[in-house]
Every structure is written in C-alpha cells, then in structure tokens.
Design a protein around this nucleic acid. Sequence first.
DNA 1: ACCCAGGGTCATA
DNA 2: TATGACCATGGG
Length: 222
Amino acid sequence: MREPNVQELKHIFRILLDTYGPQHWWPASTRFEIAIGAILVQNTMWRNVKISIKNLEKAGLLEPYRMYVASSEKIANAIKTSGFPRLKTDRLRNFLKFFENFSFDFDEMDKLETDSLRKSLLSVNGIGKETADSLLLYIFNRPTLIVDAYTKRFFLRLGYSPLSFKEKGKSQLMNALKNDPSELGEFHALVVQHSKAYCRTKPLCDKCPLSSICEFGGAYYD
DNA sequence: ACCCAGGGTCATA
DNA sequence: TATGACCATGGG
C-alpha cells in the first residue's frame, strides 16, 4: 500500500475528465440554493433533493428571509422527499439563524479567512465536515478537497493507503489540481459520477475506465 | 423484502 | 478515537 504521487493523480483526473466530461457542479442558480441543497442532500439522492428544492421554490421559501420566518411544518412539508424532514428542517433553521449573523449576505461571510470560515460553518449543528467543505468549495470558491465515503472508497479501490485522504495526502492531491477550486470542484463531482457508474459497494469493473491502474480484484468490498 | 443514497449528532466504550 | 443508533423518503 502506498500513496499516490502528483503524476498519478493528474493521470487519474485526466482519465475521469476525458471519460465523463465536465460535471457542472454545483447545480444551482443561487448561492443560497447551494447551501440549502448541501444540507438536503445529506445521505440522500440528489434527484430527490431537486424535487424538494422545486417545492421550496413553489412555496416561495427559496429565499433566506422567507425561509427564516416560515413555520417548521411548512418547510418540512416542502422538503419531505429528501428524507429526515424534521431533522433537516431543524438543520436548515440552524443555518438560517447562523446566516442572520451575516445579514443573510454571503458576501459578508466571504470576508472571513478560509480557516475561520470553516470553523464557523462547523459550529452550526447539522453542518459537518463534508457539508462545510462543499460550501467552502462551491459557494465561496475556496480551494478544498472534499473527502466523502466515495472518495475514500475510490482511493482504497485503486490500491492506495488510507493516508491518501488524510492531511498529507489531501495537500498532495490539491497540489496535483493546482489548488484550483474549479478543478477541485470538478474532481469531486467526477469521483461521485464515477462511483455511481462503476465503484459502488458492489463494483462493476467491466469496462471501468480506470481498470488499467486499479488494483481492485473484486475479492473484497470497501 | 432488502439495500442504499452527494451525512451528522449523540451516547457509549 | 471509534463504533452504533437514529434520523425517513424514494428508487433499484
């Protein structure tokens, strides 16, 4: 077991990009919509989140202050298709309460340094590491490597050690992607796309575009 | 009928 | 630090 070097990482990124093309993440028309979607998509398929967002739109709640003053019941009803409706309603409200400290203005949040912005986001009950990093990357355009279950499995399947996505490996990967938020955002989206297609818990290694460098033999899962 | 999804929190050891 | 229960709907 070893860690990937910069050349290998660049190669992997190139294959993914050539195979799947740009993923155009995060799919949303406003920054507020990204924040809402990031909370709703927790342990949930994006397809069901889209329905919830449409429902919020129809209910006139897809706007910070409108959602802020809306009843929990109204919100929960709109986001039902995303699962955990009561839990996620609380999380949305927690975020809005936090957002109020910045006058419901993302530009105000953007004034924080990345480290303190990340800590601030993590202080919200319902925003964990992955959600915080998604917001950092896709709302605030900060260079961030998002490490989710897919990412971990992705590197493990390729034969790399778990260190690949701890601090040291993260900076290595970020270097390979030039610390560029645009490329980092693309990479995460590509890993998710690739995982859906070939690298689920039950892998589909036939015709996998990474088969030439993947050491996964199908003998174990995760 | 069973398993999983673009997680996070909290209690427990 | 590291598991496990829990949150709940929709699709394969």
